[in-house]
């Protein structure tokens, strides 16, 4: 675990209201390079609002977001990605019918000649795609294969490798292990670990699954009803704490009592 002292992203007292509804009520958290920061919470806790604000989809109502200790004001997702915040959403933004290389460079093709009608430098693009995937431990021998032929874990890796190649310093992964089989979940966790081991990239991992978070994350923030109800490093928290916080702070003991009485 690299002990970076300066956070790459600092969020302070972030408030986001949609009309009369307060989705985030004063959330603060720091994200460090070379670390996995798990963002946990139940449905409706505000995880999605938080990452969409970070990704430039929503402007914050109050509070500040700083990247490299400079306050930023994202007006669009483009601003956020230019600032080095890469978001990998659940749908991965891939085109299953096209090749791995064509997906890797979608919208950012390398070409010679005039823009738009310029010819793509396919050999170079194939080589870069292979190298970038290899860095994350996936050896695609044929970059011209369709993305539709890849496993869910490999697609996830492709989306992550693409975000990193195009300059992401902070990688936001939105539920990367949901909708995958057991084995592929492990594959994705391995990929996340390899990204962390690169050392210079901060990862924000949004998940429902505290087991996965415990396996891979260095730092945790638990959200409930738009507020931070617990935070700490891997060393600070034990499994029992995590399960308690995961359930929105309600004691699991209460739940088991309740279940016992209803039966």
């Amino acid at each position: 675990m690299s002990a970076a002292t300066r956070p790459v992203i600092r969020i302070e007292n972030l408030v986001k209201r949609f009309g009369g509804f307060t989705a985030l009520n004063g959330v603060s958290l720091d994200v460090y390079p070379g670390e996995v920061h798990a963002l946990l919470g139940d449905n409706g806790a505000g995880k999605s609002t938080l990452i969409k604000t970070l990704a430039g989809v929503f402007p914050p109502t109050e509070g500040t977001i700083s990247v490299d200790e400079k306050a930023v004001n994202f007006r669009s997702p483009r601003d956020a990605s230019d600032a080095g915040i890469g978001t990998v959403y659940q749908d991965l933004a891939l085109n299953g019918l096209a090749s791995v290389t064509r997906n890797f460079f979608m919208g950012r093709e390398l070409f010679v000649g005039p823009p738009i009608f310029g010819l793509m430098r396919m050999a170079e693009m194939d080589r870069i795609t292979r190298e970038e995937m290899l860095k994350l431990g996936i050896d695609i021998s044929d970059p011209s294969q369709a993305v539709g032929t890849m496993s869910g874990g490999q697609r996830q890796t492709l989306a992550i490798a693409r975000a990193i190649h195009f300059g992401a310093k902070v990688l936001i992964l939105d539920e990367p292990t949901s909708a995958l089989g057991q084995k592929q979940q492990m594959e994705v966790l391995k990929t996340i670990k390899r990204v962390r081991d690169l050392g210079h990239i901060a990862i924000i991992l949004i998940t429902h699954n505290e087991v996965h978070a415990e396996l891979i994350a260095d730092r945790f923030t638990f959200l409930s009803l738009g507020e931070v109800i617990g935070a700490g490093t891997n060393a600070d928290l034990d499994s029992a704490d995590m399960r308690r916080l995961m359930a929105g702070g309600a004691e699991l003991a209460h739940l088991s009592e309740e279940l016992a009485t209803t039966s």
């Binding site: 085109n95 299953g96 096209a98 919208g107 009608f117």
Partner: peptide, 20 residues
Amino acid sequence: SQLGNWIYATGGNREAALAN
């Protein structure tokens, strides 16, 4: 060409193309 990749991307998965 670059435009060719955009044409395939637009038809293959419009949301993904837009996001990229």
